[in-house]
Amino acid sequence: MYVPGNNPGLLKDAHIYGADALMFDLEDSVSLQEKDTARFLVFNALLSIDYEGTETVVRVNSLETPYGRDDFEAIVRAKPDTIRLPKTEEAEEVKEADLLIGEIEGKAGIELGTIKLMAALESARGIVNAYDIATASPRLVALALGAEDFVADIKTSRSSEGCELLFARSQVLIAARAARLFALDTVFSDLKDQAAFAREVEYIKQLGFDGKSVLHPRQVETVHRIYTPTRTEIEQARRIITAMQEAEQKGAGVISLDQQMIDKPIVERAQRVLALAEATGMNKEDGGR
């Protein structure tokens, strides 16, 4: 969930709405005059507010802007889980960020490699270079699509069907999968139209995305509901994992369940289902919400 970086009222309890990750924004939601104050605010918030295990991400300004370097200097020291690079167009930018983070980790006495990276692709060039970007740094954990700038770049606008985004979404997803990263979809801005939002979440889930960026707490629940695996799915996943563990203990080379051979992608999917169940609260004994 996006949290504007210069709004103290939203910073303090952003985690209570159940989002899996909070993305503090120093970029587009902060005006040029307040870039410095927002940086101080997010820096101090990360150092002192307990977000109770919710993953923290900071969207910094690009290193090509006058604010990027200071953002890195400050934010790395505040140790969020992940830094999100906006408007990434080339692998080179990821490498540059990786080096800079390493340098600051070194100066600040933080273990090298602690801070992860997420690259947001928001332009035609970014989409074309998706796989190069996805494989540019071991810090990378996810690729994200930023559609608002992307549609402007390809000279169209967003529609409710989203046909203009199909290629970009597919490209981001395939690149992320090929590089073993998470793939995250773009925001949906019409906060009032919950039905259309739900349709879009169904759609991107079917495309294969791991999750969606949201703008408002109201959107969190919809994403969780749609991403929540059914009880049958969870049950089946548990059985697969158990079978795998048993096979490992026995030292068996082949995993089998119900007389079927289970191969690696199936195990991974089961792991993903259980992770989702965890994230959406479904793995509790009472079945969650």
């Binding site: 103290p8 910073l11 303090k12 410095d36 104050t37 101080f40 605010l41 820096f43 101090n44 918030a45 150092l47 002192s48 507010i49």
Partner: peptide, 12 residues
Amino acid sequence: ALDCVIKARVQA
């Protein structure tokens, strides 16, 4: 303001 906000504003 929270303590960390006060600190942030003074630093800024």
